[in-house]
Nucleic acid binder design. Structure first.
Length: 575
RNA sequence: GCGCCCAUAGCUCAGUUGGAUAGAGCAACUGCCUUCUAAGCAGUCGGUCGGGGGUUCGAAUCCUCCUGGGCGCGCCA
């Protein structure tokens, strides 16, 4: 697929290489910072390059003089209508109508191929996301994690990565015992016994539902069992599965799925990846036996230093080294994380991305160090941090769900505002920006709620083609299209968005910033709305002009549909 | 005490990884429906990019020091 943008970029590089031959540029000139980009101000041109600015110093001349030497060579390409040197030395270019039109036809020929790129080169990347403890329903904050993670996966897939989605089911910790005991207490209550919840037990009504299901399945089988260890081993799987079913159901409503739900408990049954990791780290002298000082900033009575297996976190600037095993010889949380990530590496993943709350940085950073020490690569593990979601209704705090255990349940919110609104809203902030979600505003059909703005643009495109049929305008004949009408600022702005779409995806993918897709979508919709208001597309008296515009609208519709698909937001034909 | 994140228009936020006169939406005000959907468009108003210093052709962006906010900080989970 020969996209216009790629063609012109290659042309630009070729021109610069030729200038090296002509000794205008030094042989060793570095072209890596040369960019073909969209000027901020559209009156500056359809595309612009900073080449002269970047290379002036190396060529020992001033940027504007160099630009004047580059420009005529660039103009030799038939897709370029005109160009000029502007500002400190930018070269602004304008595209011919014919080139725009053939670009639209390229999109129409195969929009799938047009929008797909390959920065990933098939690299095996695992994205771990959601991974909440299997102890209850998912809440609205976790939903942000889910949407960011899922959109990131779709984005990575589109840009050529081989993506694997994993959910870590943390079913091996103490919280599972608490879950089992909470369910059992409710189970006893169903048989008329007095309720005695365990300390810090789970209080949501879903626990009663799980207890009821247990009763329906096993009758009074567990009535006389009181030993916690026995209850844990017998009921662990049932309770965890019941909770995971709640979570999976909630995620399913948003169209989110995983390649694997990775059970920590099962991993431990099958082997000990931690031993392998510790051995490797010990060989590299990142792990040793030693004692720790009492932690600073806290009052701890009777602190007794003991020998522990420690990771040299101080090598990376930490205050203290990190224990991998506690004094009883069990893996610490840090140790468990290393084990799990060793397991990921063992499965052949070259890059590990984890979508994780910003409050987890204190835990995650040492893990990043440990992986760096293990693999020798700095960025194998890439945390994608996201900030808290604050939920309001008309500026007031939202009532918590008793059923879900005093949280704001994701499923309640999605049921109220719809999946499209929720998903899009979660993408309208950069991940590490705290986000406020107002349920009352979310259903308003205003610019407070930009998902409608974007969907409306799509619906308007669809309406154009319905109207075309009603007016009896024949289907588009590209060979008769009059490209001279594609010269308005508004039309070109739409076209410019189309050709920059694959670029935008690549950049968002490399930066691990899925929110850029939402901002692009709003921008693109604005460009279309503006064009829609400025010109009438359908003119039965002038079919060649109509054909040219309709070709662009068709291409725009395919691109917008693709954008919405990456965010997994529906593209309505009518609103 | 230490580490990480943040500070941009009255409010909520972007800012294409160092580029041109710092941009949107909301709010306020002014216009545009006999015309492909007004869930829209065009415009006005609004800025010491928290502050000082540095790096260079060029800084909201990079370095440094302040100020002010948020999160985290046992061998717990």
């Amino acid at each position: 697929m020969e996209r216009l943008f790629d063609t012109l970029h290659a042309h630009l590089i070729n021109v610069l290489e030729n200038l090296k031959q002509a000794e205008v540029l030094p042989q060793e000139a570095d072209l890596s910072n040369v960019a073909l980009e969209q000027p901020k101000d559209e009156t500056h041109g359809d595309l612009a390059t900073n080449a002269a600015l970047v290379l002036a110093k190396q060529a020992k001349t001033n940027p504007r003089a160099l630009a004047e030497q580059i420009l005529p060579k660039l103009l030799e390409h038939k897709a370029i209508k005109s160009g000029d040197v502007a500002g400190p030395g930018f070269i602004n270019l304008r595209i011919t109508g014919d080139a725009w039109l053939s670009e639209a036809q390229l999109v129409l020929a195969d929009s799938e191929a047009y929008t797909k790129t390959d920065v990933g080169h098939g690299q095996k990347v695992m994205v771990e996301f959601v991974s909440i403890n299997p102890t209850g329903p998912i809440h609205i904050g976790h939903g942000r994690n889910a949407v960011l993670g899922d959109t990131l996966c779709r984005l990575l897939e589109k840009t050529g990565y081989n993506v694997y989605r994993e959910y870590l089911v943390n079913d091996a910790g103490n919280q599972i015992l608490t879950l089992v005991l909470s369910v059992h207490a409710r189970y006893l209550e169903l048989f008329g016994e007095k309720l005695e919840l365990p300390e810090d037990g789970y209080v949501g009504e879903y626990i009663i539902e799980i207890a009821q299901a247990l009763k329906d399945k096993d009758g009074n089988k567990w009535l006389t069992v009181i030993c916690p260890d026995e209850l844990l081993s017998e009921l662990r799987e049932f309770c965890v599965n019941a909770c995971m079913d709640l979570t999976k159901g909630d995620l399913d409503e948003l169209g989110i799925w995983f390649d694997r739900y990775h059970s920590e408990w099962e991993m431990h049954q099958q082997g000990d990846p931690l031993a392998k990791a510790v051995k490797a780290l010990r060989e590299k002298e990142y792990v040793y036996e030693g004692k720790l000082e009492a932690p600073k900033g806290k009052d701890i009575k009777d602190y007794q230093p003991v020998d522990l297996t420690l990771f040299k976190a101080t090598e990376y600037g930490a205050e203290q080294d990190k224990p991998i095993y506690n004094r009883r010889g069990n893996a610490t949380y840090f140790g468990q994380d290393i084990a799990y990530h060793q397991h990921k590496l063992d499965r052949g993943f070259e890059r590990l991305i984890t979508v994780i709350g910003a409050d987890q940085q204190g835990n995650f950073t040492p893990l990043k160090w440990a992986l760096e020490a293990l693999t020798g690569y700095k960025d194998v593990l890439h945390p994608f941090y996201y900030a808290h979601v604050k939920t309001l209704r008309d500026g007031q705090p939202v009532k918590l769900s008793k059923r879900a255990g005093n949280i704001i349940a994701l499923s309640d919110v999605v049921r109220e505002v719809g999946g499209d609104v929720y998903r899009f809203h979660m993408l309208t902030r950069k991940g590490d920006t705290p986000l406020t979600f107002d349920l009352a505003k979310a259903v308003e059909k205003s610019m407070d709620n930009p998902v409608f703005y974007v969907q409306y643009a799509y619906a308007r495109m669809a309406a154009v083609f319905r109207q075309q049929e009603e007016m009896g305008i024949p289907s588009v004949d590209a060979s008769q299209a009059d490209t001279s009408v594609l010269n308005s600022q508004q039309a070109i702005n739409v076209l410019r968005h189309i050709i920059l779409y694959p670029q935008m995806l690549e950049k968002a993918s490399v930066a691990v910033e899925p929110h850029r897709i939402a901002f692009y979508a709003m921008d693109f919709a604005a460009a279309f709305h503006s064009w829609y208001n400025a010109e009438k597309f359908l003119d039965a008296e002038n079919l060649p002009a109509t054909y040219a515009r309709l070709l662009v609208v068709q291409a725009a519709q395919l691109v917008l549909k693709d954008v919405l698909a990456v965010m997994h937001v529906t593209a309505p034909e009518k609103m």
